[in-house]
């Protein structure tokens, strides 16, 4: 489904990604782990099309189509979804209005009829329950005054509504207490399906106890330096990033988790 070949990307002239190669097939769940500053978040932003990052080399295809030629919104309509690490607030725009606009943009792209307010309300209420968000959140401004955990649940709710082909989760576990982590993980697990791929970016292993990946990759210095199965994450937890010769000031914390 997603094929990344020799991807280089930089921000403000500084190269962050230095040749990423990755193949993700439908139905698979991949985890990208790595210390802070390794380029994990950059990879997710580049895939989603954040134009603050410049792709200097390499190619990315989604089901054979050149992803890098597409605008951000076109990639989204082709099925790329990014759950943000720090979801931004949009004051005065209700969550419901925002979500319906997004869902209808996708439907329009697929040649389907747009959903009216009543139909959408019904659907949104159901999905909000799935991530344990009170339906009153639908009426509030997008992420306006939401706690960290509520913002993350709101992101997963969006993924459930938009039903993407490739869901990229950027540090979705950060800032979550154990109960919230469970809710978010349940939401992500509900997304798992034969025709959908999931790419999780995380610093810590603990998320992978809840969402069990098929593959684990270690990103350091802008390159994938090791790939393996589920056991690689466990090994990392035990030995820390230092085991792979990577400096990480948070390795100690990660081991403690």
């Amino acid at each position: 489904m997603l094929s990344i070949k020799n991807l280089h990307a930089s921000v403000e002239g500084k190269e962050i990604l230095k040749g990423i190669n990755l193949e993700i097939k439908a139905g698979e769940v991949h985890a990208i782990m790595g210390p802070n500053g390794s380029g994990k978040s950059t990879l997710s932003q580049v895939l989603a099309g954040n134009e603050a990052f410049e792709v200097t080399e390499g190619e990315v295809t989604l089901n054979g189509e050149n992803l890098l030629d597409l605008e951000t919104e076109e990639r989204a309509r082709e099925g790329i979804f990014l759950a943000f690490q720090y979801p931004v607030e949009i004051p005065g725009v209700s969550n419901l209005q925002f979500l319906r606009t997004a869902v209808n943009a996708m439907r329009k792209h697929r040649g389907e009829e747009e959903m009216n307010a009543a139909e959408f309300m019904k659907l949104a209420k159901e999905v909000s329950k799935q991530v344990d968000l009170d339906p009153s959140f639908l009426k509030r401004g997008v992420n306006e005054g939401f706690s960290g955990g509520e913002k993350k649940r709101n992101e997963i709710m969006q993924a459930l509504l938009l039903q993407p082909k490739l869901a990229i989760l950027d540090e979705t576990d950060s800032g979550l207490d154990i109960d919230a982590l469970k809710v978010v993980s349940d939401g992500v697990n509900a997304l798992r399906s034969e025709d959908r791929a999931i790419l999780m970016v995380t610093h810590y292993q603990r998320l992978l106890n809840h969402i069990v990946p098929d593959y684990v990759h270690v990103l350091a210095g802008g390159k994938i330096i090791k790939s393996g199965g589920r056991e690689l994450a466990l090994e990392l937890e035990e030995k820390g990033y230092g085991w792979l010769g990577i400096k990480d000031e948070e390795t100690a914390d990660s081991a403690a988790n």
């Binding site: 989603a48 954040n50 919104e73 989204a76 997004a102 943009a105 792209h109 969006q158 938009l162």
Partner: peptide, 12 residues
């Protein structure tokens, strides 16, 4: 960031 969020959700 607001623009990126909206566009990432498929909005023009």
């Amino acid at each position: 960031e607001q623009m990126f969020l909206c566009r990432q959700r498929g909005i023009d």
